[in-house]
Design a protein around this nucleic acid. Structure first.
Length: 665
RNA sequence: GCGCCCGUAGCUCAGCCUGGACAGAGCAACGGACUUCUAAUCCGUAGGUCGCAGGUUCGAAUCCUGCCGGGCGCGCCA
């Protein structure tokens, strides 16, 4: 409703400019004036016209404002500043439209399928804060696309045959001398156990490089599906995958399908795409030179002149990671001519994850790729129209190679629809390192932050951070909500913890490195998730207490009054003149634009900022107007409706960010 | 060496894509507001050569060039 108004107004102005000044403008820049008194929209086009018309911007603006007719949605145009044309909307019809817009759900998903791949954690150790950022960004992006009416498929790629898994297998066998049976008896959290083990193995390798032959052999056995190594690797990796899914569910992140490296290998996806790459001459065989015996892809350098040669197949015949990624990307678009079979792996049930037993698969099922058909009908995963890969910015070069591969195969359209959703890493601040008891080398101490390293066991585990947050918020809840039963308080504490975490992970722009700091992540005041949640809780409290404060008033009385209010707009005309109320309503209305802008730019922080601004506006309103003690029924009804609009807008925004609203705070 | 990103208040960051009205938040500091729809809140004070230097423009934090400082990436590792 807001976007439509902007569009209508812009078209109206453009039309007039064309007729009156005889200048055709492609489109007009629209801005938000710095102060509410200046108007609701600002158009700076008179500055542009000044040169063509040879007159001052102010003159142009003044004359236009005098001559132009106001369309129904506009109350008035004014000439402002040094030459802006500003718009004041017709407030009452705006409010009414906004209010009914807020009651409509987002459109049902239709159209072409979008694939979003995120999380992609190596299944050999516990998830850390960097993985949380990936999942939170990916998941929020998915929610956003769905709100825009797009059909989305969420994939979480599992590299279960890589060296990282092999290393943990080596650890269990060579370091801990454990059998599969013994490993199975290890209690939870298993992924945390492997976190330490992985770091130990790495340490163990570095003490004696010859030990690396264990890795080589194990890796080959896993890739070749050789028992018993393969079985051991399968057990370890899938148990860790399940742990990851549990961790991610804690922050409200869900997946639909887990494509695995092992199936890509065994179903010979790479061989298929290798054929295609050779046929289309996308890759070249090197007869001599330093890359003798390799298949390489020639890539134009950034500026066209220098040429990169990326090795796709090594001289020993093995394929690189990028090669396999090209095959996987082809599959996502349905271009491979091959596909997986699937079986139900687990399902989301009552806020938990349970392994799939005999339930009938449904929307809550997470599917796993298999070689053989399962008793269940294969879902039609893949075949997307566009693909978003949520991967940190350090993989930009490799992502570029993958896309270039598609292009060389003649799939220009799909290459254009392959989007790298890049974001910066989460690193550890120096303070954080000392809090974790990590000793830094002299070189590291000089740096502004330290990179997380799974190999060194250097990092903050996702579960540990979540636990800390839950613990802290439970303390806060206990202090405020003594009368609630413990179960309820725990539920609220969990919601607050996740609200704090998700907002913390989403409020930074993608290009900003998060130097992780416990103090900041654990903060519940100021620009944080709990601040947003608290704003909605306050609004909800008004409605919860409505009846108690005045026996003459309850929800239905308000609703009746509300209908009458819309029928007699004059009754609230004066109240609508209040700029404080108006700017709150405008901010609510901007949600539509924020969603668009956020989806277009893939900049989730933009939506986070919107939510914060809205909450701030609401808190201002909350302090200024005491609704329940309001004696005038018209005013009371009006302010209730404003508060209702604000909480609905905020609720929608928080839902998109994956932040729940607790019952009490 | 080449490529990408960053440099804005004591700290953490928005704003830059799409140039425009006195450069904004949060935290920290200081002062104030709880018999009130819960103070996880609100109000106020203080704090800025927007890394530096040029250029383009009526107008530059924003666009262009150069420089300085920091990060990341460029493996027959994944």
């Amino acid at each position: 409703m807001f976007l439509k108004r902007i569009e209508q107004t812009e078209r109206h102005l453009r039309h007039f400019i064309a007729q009156y000044f005889a200048v055709e403008l492609e489109r007009l820049t629209v801005e938000i004036p710095p102060r509410i008194e200046f108007g609701d929209l600002a158009f700076p086009f008179p500055f542009e016209l000044a040169k063509t018309l040879g007159r001052s911007p102010r003159q142009i603006a003044t004359e236009l404002v005098e001559k132009i007719k106001t369309p129904p949605q506009v109350e008035r145009f004014v000439a402002a500043g040094a030459g802006y044309v500003n718009v004041f909307f017709e407030r009452i019809s705006f409010f009414k439209d906004l209010y009914s817009w807020l009651h409509n759900p987002f459109p049902e998903p239709t159209g072409e399928k979008i694939i979003v791949e995120h999380t992609n954690i190596n299944p050999n150790k516990a998830a850390h804060i960097g993985h949380l950022r990936n999942a939170a960004l990916g998941d929020t992006f998915v929610r956003l696309l769905r709100a825009c009416g797009r059909k989305v498929e969420v994939q979480n790629y599992i590299d279960n045959t890589g060296v990282q898994v092999a290393d943990v297998v080596v650890g269990f066998r060579q370091l801990h001398k454990m059998s599969l049976k013994q490993i199975k008896s290890i209690g939870e959290p298993f992924d945390h156990y492997c976190w330490d083990l992985y770091a130990q193995v790495y340490q163990w390798y570095s003490q004696d490089k010859s030990r690396l032959h264990y890795r080589e052999r194990t890796l080959k056995e896993i890739e070749g599906a050789q028992e018993p190594t393969s079985q051991l690797a399968e057990y370890i990796s899938m148990r860790i995958v399940l742990a990851h899914l549990k961790t991610m569910l804690r922050i409200g992140v869900r997946y639909q399908v887990l494509p695995r490296e092992s199936e890509i290998l065994r179903l010979k996806f790479w061989e298929e795409s290798f054929q295609q790459l050779k046929e289309k001459k996308a890759i070249l065989y090197r007869d001599d030179g330093p890359q003798e015996g390799c298949w390489v892809m020639r890539l134009p350098g950034e500026n066209g002149d220098s040429v990169d040669e990326k090795i796709i197949v090594r001289s020993n015949g093995t394929v690189t990671y990028v090669g396999k990624d090209i095959a996987y990307q082809l599959w996502k678009f349905g271009l491979l001519g091959k596909t997986f079979h699937y079986r139900p792996f687990c399902r989301y049930q009552d806020g938990e994850i349970v392994l799939h037993e005999d339930q009938v698969p449904d929307d809550d099922t997470v599917w796993l790729t298999t070689i053989q058909p399962s008793p269940y009908k294969d879902p039609d995963f893949g075949q997307g129209n566009s693909v978003y890969n949520v991967i940190d910015v350090r993989q930009s070069y490799l992502q570029r190679v993958v896309v270039e591969g598609l292009r060389r195969l003649g799939f220009a359209e799909q290459a254009d629809h392959s989007v790298h959703f890049a974001y910066e890493m989460v690193a550890l601040s120096p303070t954080c390192c000392s809090e974790l008891g990590i000793e830094l080398s002299e070189e590291e101490q000089k740096k502004p932050y330290v990179e997380v390293s799974g190999r060194k066991g250097l990092g903050v585990k996702a579960d540990d951070l979540i636990n800390k947050l839950v613990e802290k918020s439970l303390e806060e809840v206990n202090a405020r909500q003594k009368d609630l039963p413990l179960e309820k308080r725990k539920e609220i504490a969990h919601q607050i913890a996740i609200g704090a975490l998700r907002y913390f992970l989403l409020k930074y722009t993608r290009s900003s490195v998060i130097a992780f700091d416990f103090t900041e992540a654990l903060s519940f005041e100021g620009e944080t998730g709990p601040y947003l949640q608290y704003s909605v809780v306050r609004a909800n409290n008004i409605f919860r207490k409505l009846e108690a404060s005045d026996p003459q008033w309850d929800i239905s009385v308000w609703e009746d009054n509300c209908e009458r209010m819309w029928e007699e707009p004059n009754s609230i005309a004066e109240l609508m003149d209040d700029n404080q109320v108006w700017s709150l309503l405008l901010q609510v209305a901007r949600l539509e634009e924020s969603i668009h802008q956020t989806a277009r730019s893939m900049e989730i922080s933009y939506l986070a900022k919107h939510a914060f601004n809205l909450a701030q506006q609401f808190n201002l309103f909350y302090h200024k107007y005491h609704i329940l003690s309001e004696r005038d029924p018209i005013k009371k009804c009006f302010y209730l409706t404003v508060a209702d609009a604000a909480r609905r807008g905020l609720f929608k925004t928080l839902d998109l960010l994956g932040i729940q609203v607790p019952e009490r705070m």
